[in-house]
Each structure stands twice: as C-alpha cells, then as structure tokens.
Amino acid sequence: MIRVHQLSKIYTDWQHGDSIALNAISFAAKRGEIYGLLGTNGAGKTTALRILATVLAPSSGNATIDGCDVVKDSALVRQKIGFVSSNTAIYDRMTAWELVTYFGRLHGLEPELLRDRMEGVFAQLEMHDFRDVLGAKMSSGMKQKTSIARALIHDPPVLIFDEATVGLDVLAGRSLLDTVCVLRDQGKCIVFSTHIMREAERLCDKVAILHRGRFLAEGNWRDLSQQHGHADLEELFFELIREDRSIHSASSPPASAGGETSVSMAASGLT
C-alpha cells in the first residue's frame, strides 16, 4: 500500500545553508497495518508524512501510495489519503458539519453519497452532538474528531496521523486511539507518528525509530525488542538515541560543535 524508497529531503536555508531533514529512509506498510514513526522533535517525522501527503516534494528517492507516485501522481495520491495532524486544523468560522461537507465536496463526492457518508462518519465518531458548533467554540477533542471525520469522509485506503494525540486529554486521546484501531480493522493502511512510546506499543504493527533524518531501527517491534534485548520500547528508543548521539559526538570535531545547534534551528518546528 505504502512504499518508500531512499527518501531524502534537504531544506534550503538562505541564511544557514542547506540541511538534511530526511536521509534516505525506506519502509513499506500494508493494508490493515499500523506503521509507527517514532522520533524526537526535529527527527523528520512530519517531513516524511508531509512528503507522503504531497505537501512537500522529496529531494531524492521516491514514495508510492497504492501504486501512485507522490510526485508524479500527486492528485491521485491526495484522493487516496486522509491526513490528520497534531494541529487540528479546524476553521474557526465553520461548523463541524460544514467543514466535513466542504472537504467531501472537494473530493468530488456526489451530494447523496456525501450525505450518507457524513451521517455514517458522524455516527461512528459520535459527533452529532456538536455538528453545528463553530470551530472556534469546540474543545480539543471535538476538533480532533472533526479533523478525523474530514480525513475519513472520502473513505481513503491510507490514513496519515501526525502526532494526532498531542494536546488531547486522556479520554479524548484514548478515544482517538480506539478509532485508529477500528480503522485498522476496517482494512485501512495507517501511518502513525508519535513520540509517545506507550501509544506505539499499543497500536503499531511495525515501527521505525527516526533520529536526525535516519532510521535507527525499523521492523516489527517485538522482533526489535528481541534483537536488542529490551522488553520496553521506550528503553529501546533511549538506547538507540544514546548510541547515535555518542557516535555523532565521537566523530564530530570540536570546531563543528555548532552544527547540531544550527540543524535544530533550521529544522525547528519540523517534528
């Protein structure tokens, strides 16, 4: 369903020169599978997901979704994905119903089909109570539900969740994770980025630990835990990050101590 091969992304910065946000990552995810992208802030998770969502163009490598290339067939790819970000991205002056209708119509759904889908999605996510509430007056949970409804309205085979639980309370967070599980069970291919290891343990069939734009480990998490001798994903994550940092600091000359600072500055906000 999703195939990523040697995907790289270089950000050009007028002031600080270019910096590599993604460095030749490769992975694949199947239908009915949740693929977890784990990493610290600035690791390159959002960049990778934005490339999959055709918002950013890769600098090299390629990625396909359901056989469609994210660069060459970007319009087709956008028909096949639903994108949910940590920033709930709700219009303040639109109600939940209006917003989902708007995106449904952008996806070219016929009015009758759209109405049926709306009713179904709103029922599934229990959104009828606040369907006529303006975005500005919604709680974080309501906003995230609306955001998921927007992503689901055209029934895409692939769903991309970019740190979708950030800012949600425990109940809303649990509800979202349950929804993701249900979607997986419906046969959707889901890419789920997070830096909360417990979520990944609970949800993901496969995980990739991303740090400084590179995969430190990738595969079924149970295989990974056996391979590295850790029962806990969080411990595995910390160990891999520590190792990577020690390699980096050992091979880095003292004069380039500012390198890390500059990279984090250039990639600030690119989680």
């Binding site: 270019d18 910096s19 980096h248 390198g259 890390e260």
Partner: peptide, 9 residues
C-alpha cells in the same frame, strides 16, 4: 554551496 549535514561522516 556545500550541504551541511547533521552527521560529519
């Protein structure tokens, strides 16, 4: 213009 990488290697 050299590309500044995060990793010196």
């Amino acid at each position: 213009q050299p590309v500044r990488d995060q990793r010196p290697d």
